[in-house]
């Protein structure tokens, strides 16, 4: 497939990765190489081969609905880059239309 600047930009945006100009060019080249590398798989006849969705044959691993202690007070925020205790702090969440964005 054709690896375009737009594709790289779109994927970088989806990945929430800021890329410099040079880095974008390098990533485009890398995409090209990796897609070339994996194109070998196209030669395989995979008709009727189920995808291995899980690494294990195990199933039904569940736990009882029994509470355990949460982290001690303050521990949740101990590593926070910014906090307004007891909250985490992030830049104001505002959509382009001036509306608070909602969780999708």
């Amino acid at each position: 497939m054709d690896v375009t600047d737009e594709l790289v930009a779109k994927i970088a945006r989806l990945s929430r990765l800021a890329l410099g100009e040079e880095e974008s060019a390098e990533m485009k080249e890398h995409f090209r190489k990796v897609l070339g590398f994996v194109s070998e798989l196209e030669s395989l006849d995979l008709e009727g081969v189920a995808p291995s969705l899980f690494a294990l044959d195990a199933s039904n691993v569940q736990r009882e609905d029994e509470p355990a202690p949460s982290l001690p007070a303050g521990a949740a925020l101990a590593n926070a880059p910014a906090a307004h205790p007891p909250f985490f702090l992030v830049p104001r969440i505002v959509g382009d239309a001036g509306e608070p964005e909602m969780s999708p």
Binding site: H84, V90, P91, R92, I93, S103
Partner: peptide, 15 residues
């Protein structure tokens, strides 16, 4: 929950 406080430049997060 994200909490938007009127007039503040940031939002708060409660998990």
């Amino acid at each position: 929950k994200n909490i938007h406080v009127e007039g503040r430049p940031e939002s708060w997060v409660d998990l």
